[in-house]
């Protein structure tokens, strides 16, 4: 009996928190953070001060106490925000499927090659494919990340140098033929 009551209470609590979160998100996205934050703080500050005055506190004490409350709210929010950011950064760091620096570079190389030099792209795209494939295989085999990053950058660098040399060679032979 007690357990079921507890469960009901926790589910009500969770629903209420979800509702508050929804309302806050709507308010924030609806009016903009710059408007909602000062208005919210002012409402808390003024409301709390009025309650204290109504309870019989002197005006100066009520203002001081409500100021302390506002500062506390700001502090807690800042700590929560920093903690949240740290957790999300950790999650991002652990995910190796996201587009990281070297994958982004490979993507840029692919785009440049495909648009500026379609012949070389057609001939050598399997090389780029295999560079990214071995990167994924190494990460799945739990090879140290720094090693994989250095290796991939080095391979991409070699890929660029050799493709440029091939392109230059072709350009030079074409120029010789024209002459």
């Amino acid at each position: 009996m007690k357990k079921s009551r507890k469960r009901i209470l926790t589910s009500i609590k969770q629903k209420f928190l979800a509702f508050v979160r929804k309302v806050l998100i709507r308010l924030t996205y609806g009016f903009g953070f710059e408007v909602v934050l000062p208005i919210g703080l002012y409402v808390i500050f003024a409301g709390f001060a009025r309650i204290l005055i109504w309870l019989g506190f002197s005006t100066s004490v009520a203002i001081a106490l409500s100021l302390i409350l506002v500062i506390l709210i700001l502090l807690v929010s800042a700590i929560a925000y920093i903690k949240h950011r740290n957790i999300t950064n950790k999650v991002r760091r652990n995910s190796y499927l996201r587009v990281r620096g070297e994958v982004k570079l490979a993507d840029n190389i692919a785009q440049i090659l495909a648009t500026k030099s379609p012949r070389e792209w057609e001939e050598y795209q399997d090389w780029l494919h295999d560079i990214l494939l071995i990167r994924r295989q190494l990460l799945e085999r739990h090879c140290p990340r720094w090693k994989v990053i250095i290796l991939t950058y080095w391979r991409l660098f070699a890929f660029c140098v050799i493709i440029s040399l091939i392109k230059l060679k072709r350009f030079a032979s074409a120029a010789r033929k024209i002459r």
């Binding site: 587009v99 692919a110 399997d126």
Partner: peptide, 28 residues
């Protein structure tokens, strides 16, 4: 591999696998 292909010692075909996610490069 390109040289060998030019000399006629090997031939190549594109793989049926889906291209690489980010770059769109295919396996050969």
């Amino acid at each position: 591999l390109r040289k060998l292909e030019k000399r006629g010692f090997v031939t190549s075909r594109w793989g049926d696998e889906t291209p690489e996610e980010t770059t769109g490069a295919r396996r050969r």
